[in-house]
Each structure stands twice: as structure tokens, then as C-alpha cells.
Amino acid sequence: MTAVPTAKERGSLWSRFWHWARYEGFFAHLVMVVALFIIFIPLLWMVGTSFKDRLEFATNPAGLFPRRWSLINYEFGFTQLENLPIYMRNSFILAFGTVALQVFVCSLAGYAFARLQFRFRDLIFLGILVSMFIPRSGGLMALYELMTFLHLRNTLIGLILLFASGIPVPVFIMRQTFLAVPKEIEESALIDGASWFQVFWRIALPIAAGGMVVIATLSFIGVWSDYLVTFTLIDKDTQMTISVGIRKLLRMSYDMALSPRFRGKFAGEASDTAMLLIAAFPVILFYGLLQRWFMRGLMEGAIKF
């Protein structure tokens, strides 16, 4: 990187390239491309393998991509595994239920903490933030007991309530969002005779929509991806989510690949990768579409330290 004098000796073309490269960060791009490729190898391999049929997988397990592309694994997954749509449906119910509940309660609370005057307001807010840092030792065991006691084990409602209760970061983000809304608009509405709830619902909330998208994105991805809590609290097939049930799906597809009915059509290992992609697809899509909001949420969540 320090070879500037030699660059001059080699003439203007090289020197111009050199200056352009330094300005643009060309070498950093080069390193990034290599790094990204390394990061991406397992993902690319997963995508590629999911399009390999049995013959292709047996003859070319080493290739990142198949030589002949086949949709057999997906076809099989969507038509033969009757648990897949159930798990998917449960995951969607859980994720959307949690997002709706959390956005609703955290917007209300964030608004109150930002705007309304009441006793112990700042103390309660501080308490919520501080309690976030207490380690949840034994939390899972206590939750198991609590959910059994409330008859919420093996129910999606129980999980929705539980996941929606992770309020500190969302409330913090919503409070910041409402603090950024000019107070004057609300005050003039109040003078015109609107109630607090009307001000909240008709004026503050639409302006704060950005913050709500942020917490919705964070919570959707977190809930969809959860493993340990769901695995502990749900053991019925009818209430299982895709992120936990995926292990069972893989076993089923593996067994089916060996059964006489499907022998020779597809390889268990290859169909596994297709299942994994199906399970991950909604979060990837969500993350892709809303990444700007998601990053904002991460930053705002992180910067408070």
C-alpha cells in the first residue's frame, strides 16, 4: 500500500489507477469481496444443493451449484410433508401476533414515557432499562413453571405474550421516536379540544410510524428465529413453529428419501437444504425489504450504552 514512488516510475496509467484505487478504496473492496465469498460459501452451497436431484447429488456433491437444476426437493417438500404448512402457519401466527401486540403496548408506553406527566414516570422507565441487564439465570426453568401454572404451555398465545413482554428496547426506541415529534402539533390539537387518546391515535402515532416499523422488524426476526424457548415450551406438533420443527422435517424427509416410494428420486441430504431454505426464507425476505429500518433499530438499541 505504500508503493507510491514506484507507481510514478511506471508511468501515468498505473499512477492514475493507483490514485483512483486509493480514493475509491479499491483494495478494501477487493478484500471485502474475498471475505464475503468466504462468508457466503455455506449459504451458496445450501442454495445450490437444494436444487440437486438424487443423481446430481450423488455424482456432484462437491460442487457449489448443480450442473442440472432440479426443483424436485421443493416439490417434495411442499407436497409430501404435511407438517410443513402447519409449522409455517404457526410461525406466522406467532410472529405477527407478537409484532402486533408488542408494537401496540410499546407505542402506548413509549408515548406515555415521552409525553405525559405522571408521578414516578422517570423512575419506572429507568427501572425497566436497568432490569434489562440483570442476567436471566434460571429464567427458562422459572418460565417453564410459570407457563405450566398459567396453562399456557404448548399454546401459541403463551409464546406471543412471552415474546411480546421483552419491552425494554422497543419502549426505549418508541420513547425516542415520540420525543423527536414536535410537541407544538400535539399542543394545538389539545387546545382544539382533542383528548389524549385522540392526540396519540391521530397525530403522534402516524408520525411515529418509523419507530414502529423498526421495533416490528426487530421483533419479527427475533421471534421467527427463536429456538430454545419455543423448544422448551412447545412439544405438540400442532403448535410447533418452523424454526424448531425443522429438525423433525429433516428427519422425515431423510426417511422418505430412503422409502421405496421415493427411492432414487431425491437425496435426503439435498432435500434437507431445501427445507432449511424454506424455513429461513421469510426472515431473509423481511430482512431484505426492511433492512434500513432494521439497521436503524440495531443502532438505536446499541447506542444507548
Binding site: 401496540f104 402506548l108 406515555a112 419506572i124 425497566i128 436471566r136 422459572a142 405474550l161 412471552l162 387518546f197
Partner: peptide
Amino acid sequence: NPFGYLFIAPALILYLIFNVWPIIRG
């Protein structure tokens, strides 16, 4: 403002039941 308590109540109740209690109980 009494609405303050009303507005934070749902979030706070959820938090107390499903987050604070498990810490204590754990």
C-alpha cells in the same frame, strides 16, 4: 396525568409477569 399509568399498564404488566417474575423465581 392518569392516562400515563393507563398507557404504560399493558407493557408493564406483561413485563412484570413474563420477565421480572422469572428473574425472581429463577
